[in-house]
Nucleic acid binder design. Structure first.
Lengths: 317, 317
DNA sequence: CTGAAAGCGCTTACAG
DNA sequence: CTGAAAGCGCTTACAG
């Protein structure tokens, strides 16, 4: 049985408005009324119905989080960070995990709109989303992209990918490597790599998108240091290197990115760049709340960090 | 600018009720009015506001999903299955990832209640939840536990753990193993193990809860087949076996559970029991929808499946 | 200072 | 058959 302000009002023979005010400790209500109201609300396990409040306030206290399917615990950690911050602000989090199908993305966003979200966090790149975003943009709903710097006209919260790219490259440079392969999937990370390599006066790296493209270079031993797009990709690269008869880190060094849970397993032991995943979620949600409350803020880049494990070593001379 | 039925009504000089009926193709509204309404709704990108509708219908078209933090992509796959099924029914999915802190669980459930969820799916065991569940039970909100068979008085959707336990044990028995170690974390799986072992007339297995408890048995080579609680635990057990100088599968066989993404990597190559994760989510949500709509249903157990990889082999003679 | 009314967006039950 | 009113639960602006 659902309890309402009205039922409490009837029971105590006061007006619904008075109950509402009493529950929010409004000074206009005498203390004795307040305590009676609160006692009854407690007994009957009254929970305010967000529909009435939301309709009234024009605010739903609901946020949407849209992410792509992802195995390997990246987006779920972000989800956790977002959820915690949302909960503290009494916000509910509508989550949708989508494929890349634009129709599905649009249908999920439509549900967000129907449920009246006050804001949306998207863990994807704007280039993939732009058509489905029309509805959101049309209504001027605050939107934040997270863990990507491709956010179109919207704000984003992400790891400083340029700095991360620099960190990875510098680590290998300091170990004495000269011949690199760098992944181009994240443009800012690649720029970071190239910047560090150029500043060290070293030759231009091999640039690859899919891991497989590296096989010829591995076989010809043209590179000694690989900078992967992610720890997930590092697994693939490790396998390719092994297939080419190369040992890690003796013959070839690999630096990952993300620091997912498996990176520290002895089977991998990847030197990698730590992304502050939980923080991305928390910061993205706080920023969204500020945006909902007020107005104008700038992008936020969080600091990456290098963690050295056993997938990198000095090159053979 | 948010569009409402009222604004459309004013523009077309008809009543809000007529607009509402027209949008839902009610036969009482003449066709020419319908098409005018629909055209305008389209142009103005009208999306019905769930608050008005929900308040009226006493239904939110919102479901809650509560899960524990989990790295390794089990609960996020379930989330995906739930989300897809929810979206098809035009349901929004409120997701909350919690720790085991009962206060946090209670606060998340309270947010679910405030947002007026029509039903809740919980990926946890009832024993952990029972105190926080009071609020939900008090209000009679339909609740389904998923991926656990410990669901208290509520329905559950889970893999048939008993059958899964049998599958794992039988596989090792067929390979010729006689001396087993079985994990007790999931009681039904353990029962399945014991059942198969007993039926084969083999000696009682070593039973362990935490992986570390197995170290003595491993060192003394008392067991040749280990049935893990999960692929995640299988990783730990593999490391412990390696530390004890045992090779997999030559010296010791390990069967995992779940078939998470990493189980098939060459570093692990676990023989394991496939849980229909995506299906669990989809079935749980369909069941919840039925429960919301009507009433009485029974528990659902989904079929596990064995996948043989390279972590199991015949025992040495 | 206090209390009743109006209204958020929608749908259903009812009067004409 | 058609259209206006009542009401879901809440809060705010207003009348007394």
């Amino acid at each position: 049985m659902r309890m309402t302000i009205k039922k409490i009002a009837v029971e105590l023979n006061i007006s619904p408005a008075a109950v509402s005010l009493a529950l929010r400790d409004d000074p206009r209500i005498p203390d004795c009324t307040k305590s009676k109201v609160k006692k009854l609300a407690d007994e009957w396990a009254y929970v305010p119905n967000n529909f009435g409040r939301g309709l009234q306030a024009g605010k739903s206290c609901l946020a949407g989080y849209l992410a792509n399917s992802f195995t390997g615990s990246f987006y779920d950690i972000i989800l956790q960070g977002i959820g915690e911050t949302a909960a503290v602000a009494n916000y509910g989090l509508l989550a949708a995990i989508t494929s890349y199908d634009p129709d599905i993305i649009a249908s999920r966003l439509r549900i967000f709109l129907e449920k009246n979200v006050d804001g949306v966090i998207i863990a994807d790149t704007y280039s993939n989303m732009s058509s489905a975003m029309k509805m959101i943009e049309f209504r001027g709903i605050p939107t934040i992209f997270c863990s990507t710097q491709d956010s179109g006209p919207h704000l984003h919260v992400a790891t400083d990918n340029f700095a991360g790219g620099q960190l990875a490259a510098r680590h290998l440079i300091e170990l004495g490597h000269k011949y690199f392969a760098c992944c181009s999937v994240e443009p800012d990370r690649l720029r970071g790599n190239l910047d560090a390599i150029k500043k060290a006066g070293l030759p231009s790296p091999v640039i690859f998108k899919k891991s497989e493209e590296l096989t010829p270079a591995l076989k010809k031993k043209e590179v000694t240091g690989i900078i992967a797009y992610s720890d997930m990709q590092a697994i693939k690269l490790k396998h390719l290197a092994n297939c080419a008869g190369l040992k890690i880190p003796e013959d070839i060094s690999i630096v990952g990115f993300d620091d997912l849970w498996f990176a520290q397993l002895e089977e991998f032991n990847f030197t990698t760049i730590i992304q502050p995943k939980d923080e991305i979620g928390r910061v993205a949600m706080s920023l969204l709340l500020k945006l909902i409350a007020a107005g104008d803020y700038g992008n936020i880049l969080l600091k990456p960090e290098l963690i050295v494990r056993k997938s990198t070593a000095a090159p053979k001379l």
